[in-house]
């Protein structure tokens, strides 16, 4: 079972690395930000899987903090960075 958990975690890490492409390419700021937010969700899943694999309940706390605080960055993006970004789409 632990082997399966670790394998799934590895697979999720692969998807996370693949998602880097979207952060790099954009084209709009929202694309980059949403990709980074999706990374956060994936990281929560990886942490929960690792918590089971290595039988370390503290990792669930890390996942909890990540899951709760992801919203703060998203709100900061919407309130601070988004309106100015609309018209300057970088390549």
């Amino acid at each position: 079972m632990q082997l399966l958990f670790l394998a799934v975690a590895l697979f999720l890490l692969c998807t996370l690395i693949a998602g880097m492409w979207r952060v790099l390419r954009g084209p709009t700021a929202a694309d980059r930000m949403l990709a980074a937010q999706l990374f956060g969700t994936t990281a929560v899943a990886i942490l929960l899987l690792l918590a089971e694999t290595y039988d370390n309940p503290a990792l669930r706390d890390v996942a909890l903090v990540f899951a709760l605080l992801a919203a703060v960055t998203a709100v900061a993006f919407v309130r601070r960075a988004w309106p100015e970004q609309v018209d300057d789409r970088s390549d």
């Binding site: 996370l16 952060v23 990709a35 980074a36 956060g40 990281a43 690792l50």
Partner: peptide
């Protein structure tokens, strides 16, 4: 955005 993602991987 990349730095935020970096922080995630760093935690892992």
């Amino acid at each position: 955005a990349l730095f935020i993602a970096f922080g995630l991987l760093m935690a892992l």
